[in-house]
Simulated assay, not measured.
Amino acid sequence: MCGRYVIARMAGDLLGGVELEEDLANYNVAPTQTVPVLVDHAADGGWRRELHSARWGLLPRWAKDESFSSRAFNARSETVLEKPTFRHAVKAQHCAVPATGYYEWLKAPEQGSGRPAKTPFYVHPADEAQNIYFAGLYEWWRIPAGPEQGGWLLSTTILTMDSPSEREAELAEHGAATLSELSRLHDRLPIPLAFTGDDDDALSRWLRASESPAAAVEEVRTGAYDVAATWELREVGPEVGKVSRNGPELIEPAGTLL
């Protein structure tokens, strides 16, 4: 799931409190490609937020080659504490993966064929001037061979959880319609973090969590639906399924909502 996502922020915009120095626009990011990640480092009695580039797909320290990352671009939050791929990073190497939105494909039976048809949707904040900040993990991997042998490669993964059920959507105080659409779109949801700009918002707490990984994961899971309830979905064209296609036309509406 979350097999493509979108960065449409331009140079000069604030990204989780960090001012961009370059144009990061990319409308069709795929696993193993380079993505931005936000991290907080302790500095001078406070915190310094930094923006780095990372490979989308986690490379644990013991991975033998880069191809491993193609299997680790998402991490199930329910098992992230136990899985060998993620259990080192989840202890203290937390990051946020910022995006303008992401694509997900709705599977529905084709009339007459019985085969599933896939319809792409663009999921994004209702206020498209805002970003989504996905809860992520990062790892540094030592490059074993080639021109960059001995160097370090930064990689990342995005945490996921169950999408809201229809019952959970019905009981939601806000955004019931959006949560209902998400429940039918896919059974998994990339976990978003609330960003208010305060020093104690969910984004900051996740980036700085180190004492109790289990509690930190549970906290981001608990707040995920509240953030997702503020999103919107729109159907887009099938071109988003081609990694070679890129540009703002990919997020233009191509049909009706769910």
Rank of each mutant, 00 (worst) to 15 (best):
C2Q: 00
R4C: 02
V6D: 02
R9I: 11
G12L: 10
V18W: 01
E19S: 03
E22I: 10
V29K: 00
A30F: 11
T32P: 05
P36A: 00
V37L: 04
V39E: 05
V39I: 08
D40F: 07
H41R: 10
A42P: 09
A42R: 08
A42S: 15
A43N: 08
G45K: 02
R49G: 09
E50Y: 13
S53M: 06
A54N: 05
A54I: 03
A54C: 03
A54E: 08
L59T: 00
R61N: 14
A63E: 05
A63W: 05
K64Q: 15
D65G: 04
E66C: 15
S67Y: 02
S70A: 15
S70F: 09
F73H: 08
N74T: 08
A75G: 10
R76A: 07
R76F: 05
E78V: 13
V80I: 11
K83H: 11
K83M: 06
K83Q: 11
A89W: 00
K91F: 08
A92T: 10
Q93I: 01
H94Q: 04
A96P: 13
V97Y: 03
P98N: 02
P98R: 05
G101A: 02
W105Y: 10
W105L: 12
L106Y: 07
E110T: 10
K118G: 07
P120A: 05
P120T: 02
V123I: 15
D127V: 07
D127G: 06
A129H: 09
N131H: 07
Y133P: 01
L137F: 01
L137Q: 01
E139K: 08
E139M: 03
W140T: 10
R142D: 15
P144S: 09
P147S: 09
G150H: 05
G151C: 12
T157M: 10
I158P: 13
L159Q: 00
M161E: 09
M161V: 07
M161W: 08
S163A: 13
A169S: 06
A169D: 05
A169L: 08
E170P: 03
E170S: 02
L171H: 07
A172G: 08
A172I: 11
E173Y: 00
G175F: 12
A177N: 06
T178D: 06
T178A: 12
S180V: 11
S180G: 15
E181I: 13
R184F: 02
L185N: 02
D187F: 12
D187C: 07
D187W: 09
R188F: 04
R188N: 06
P190S: 01
A194S: 12
G197M: 06
G197A: 09
D201H: 05
D201T: 12
L207D: 05
S210F: 05
S212Q: 00
P213A: 11
A215H: 06
V220G: 02
T222I: 14
T222L: 15
D226Y: 04
D226M: 00
A228V: 11
W231T: 05
L233T: 13
R234Q: 14
G237W: 01
V240D: 06
K242H: 11
V243E: 14
S244H: 13
N246M: 01
N246Y: 03
P248F: 07
E249N: 06
I251D: 13
E252P: 09
P253K: 15
A254Q: 04
G255S: 09
T256I: 15
